[in-house]
């Protein structure tokens, strides 16, 4: 979409963009392509005839509170008569002149199947304020103004917002809506070795899922950091990658990584701050400072590292949720389960 049309929507300059706007701008651009003229146009069109007098048209415009109308010669679109044309007629004392003498021609029209972005460009280029909308056969089916486009975008955004609210609402009530003695949600991700470019994607999904479930930002951050360090460890060290598994329950979050090698020869040493065996590739990515496990420990209530050289490594992390952090619903005192 050209910058011009975005500027049309957001104003030329100076206005401070709010957080909400910034999130929506990307979506507005998308909508400018998604929405068609037929989605936003006014279908009820008041038309004028070429032989009508300027004063009659003026009365008609006033009556319907509009600022212009297409001029129809039978089925044919003959021109557009706007307030500007009428002012011109008035300055020439020609209120009784016929519309055909003052209307604007040739008519620039828009197709009902075109994206609104195209109409926005036409508005910018032509300086026009309204466009008649025609269908494939050239028949007049509506009118579109900048106001119609703004309204159309706002309505679509409102619908988006409502949908997201609904998704959040549904997700955050997951544990309330499902009755069982012990409900848990399990997320599993397969992590590829040495994939530094996509690394972190799983953790990113996990953090977003927690926020969507209604977790407080601080909790989502703690979990995010813990699983991210664990995911990076799989990418750096595991022979064949591994599995990252998160089990979300109303009262706690269990996170776990497992791999099938190479295993850690000295677990105590691995837990020493600053100890690292990371490759230069990992170091180039900003990791391998020997702080990963230390960071994880800081973020969780319980961490257990089990490893057998040649067999593999299992890292368990657990966060118990405080009364305020607990996900709504679920049993108050769930039995200690087999994991």
């Amino acid at each position: 979409m050209s910058n011009n049309s975005l500027q049309e929507i957001y104003g030329r300059k100076g206005r401070i963009v709010t957080d909400q706007d910034a999130r929506e701008i990307g979506r507005v651009e998308e909508l400018a392509y998604e929405l068609k003229n037929r989605d936003v146009m006014s279908r009820e069109v008041h038309t004028a005839a070429p032989q009508m007098s300027i004063s009659d048209v003026l009365m008609m415009l006033r009556k319907h509170r509009i600022s212009g109308a297409p001029v129809m010669d039978g089925e044919q679109l003959a021109g557009i008569i706007s307030m500007e044309d009428i002012v011109r007629a008035m300055s020439e004392n020609a209120l009784s002149a016929s519309v055909s003498a003052y209307m604007t021609r040739p008519v620039i029209s828009a197709h009902d199947y075109d994206s609104i972005v195209k109409s926005l460009e036409t508005f910018t280029k032509s300086g026009l304020g309204r466009l008649p909308v025609v269908d494939e056969s050239g028949k007049l089916v509506g009118m579109v103004t900048k106001g119609d486009i703004t309204r159309g975008i706002l309505l679509a955004l409102q619908k988006d917002y409502h949908d997201e609210e609904l998704r959040r609402y549904r997700a955050s009530h997951l544990f309330e809506d499902i009755t069982s003695d012990r409900t848990s949600l399990i997320l599993r991700y397969r992590i590829k070795p040495r994939d530094f470019v996509n690394g972190g994607q799983a953790s990113s999904h996990i953090k977003r899922a927690l926020l969507r479930l209604g977790a407080p930002p601080q909790l989502a951050r703690q979990c995010g950091i813990a699983v991210y360090e664990a995911e990076i460890n799989l990418i750096i060290h595991s022979t064949n990658g591994g599995i990252l598994r998160v089990q979300i329950e109303p009262h706690r979050i269990l996170m776990q990584t497992t791999d099938d090698g190479p295993g850690i020869p000295d677990v105590a040493q691995a837990l020493t701050p600053g100890w690292s065996t990371a490759s230069s590739e990992a170091r180039a990515m900003g990791f391998g400072a020997g702080m990963g496990l230390v960071n994880i420990k800081r973020c969780v209530d319980k961490m257990e590292l089990e490893s057998t050289p040649g067999k593999g490594t299992k890292l368990l992390m657990e966060i118990n949720l405080s009364a305020e952090e607990k996900f709504k619903g679920g049993a108050e005192h769930p039995e200690e389960p087999p994991v």
């Binding site: 972190g200 994607q201 953790s203 951050r221 995010g224 900003g286 990791f287 960071n295």
Partner: peptide, 29 residues
Amino acid sequence: MSDVLAAARPDAVLLTGLCNPQVIRTAQM
């Protein structure tokens, strides 16, 4: 990046000489 994950309080601006996708992931976390 482990220093960022260990030390950064939420809502900070990050100054870094490192330039790779993990910087963005770290920032998000």
